[in-house]
Structures are given as structure tokens and as C-alpha cells.
């Protein structure tokens, strides 16, 4: 499940952050990606929501620290 999510997330991350070679790992965070600011973060979230057909709560997003948290969150939403 986790690998499938990463596979689906990778092109989204690459497109949003304009980094064609970006690898999505569990520890990847805003500190590692130059273009990861509040605007691109929001576009990332809304794209993930529409691609995966899920809806995040504000408090879930606030607690999210890295890509690993996002992957886990998507996983629980899909189950």
C-alpha cells in the first residue's frame, strides 16, 4: 500500500515543486525542497486530495511534519 501511494505521489511532488528528479521518501520535508513554501504546499495538498479522492482535516495537516506523515494519513483515509 505504502509503495503504491509513493508511486502515485512522486509525479505530483515533482510537478508541484518543479524538481523532475525528486524522490519521495518518508523523511522528505519542506527543509529539503527549495520550492516547498506555503503556496506550493497548498497546491500539493489540494492536488493530493483530488488525485486520491480524500479530504484532510485542518488539524491533520497541522500535525503533518514530513512526506511520511502524509503517506500514513492517505493510507488511513483510504482504508
Amino acid at each position: 500500500m505504502e509503495n503504491e501511494i509513493i508511486e502515485k505521489l512522486t509525479p505530483i511532488f515533482r510537478k508541484v515543486f518543479k524538481e523532475p528528479a525528486l524522490e519521495v521518501t518518508a523523511t522528505l520535508s519542506a527543509n529539503d525542497v527549495e520550492k516547498w513554501d506555503s503556496l506550493s504546499h497548498l497546491i500539493l495538498i489540494s492536488t493530493v486530495e483530488s488525485e486520491f479522492g480524500v479530504k484532510f482535516k485542518l488539524k491533520e495537516l497541522v500535525a503533518m511534519k514530513n512526506a511520511g506523515d502524509l503517506i500514513k494519513l492517505i493510507e488511513t483515509k483510504l482504508q
Partner: peptide, 8 residues
């Protein structure tokens, strides 16, 4: 952040 969340 809450504003952008609601306007996403």
C-alpha cells in the same frame, strides 16, 4: 494557514 486551508 486556516484561511488557505479553507480556500484551497
Amino acid at each position: 494557514y486556516p484561511l488557505t486551508y479553507n480556500l484551497r
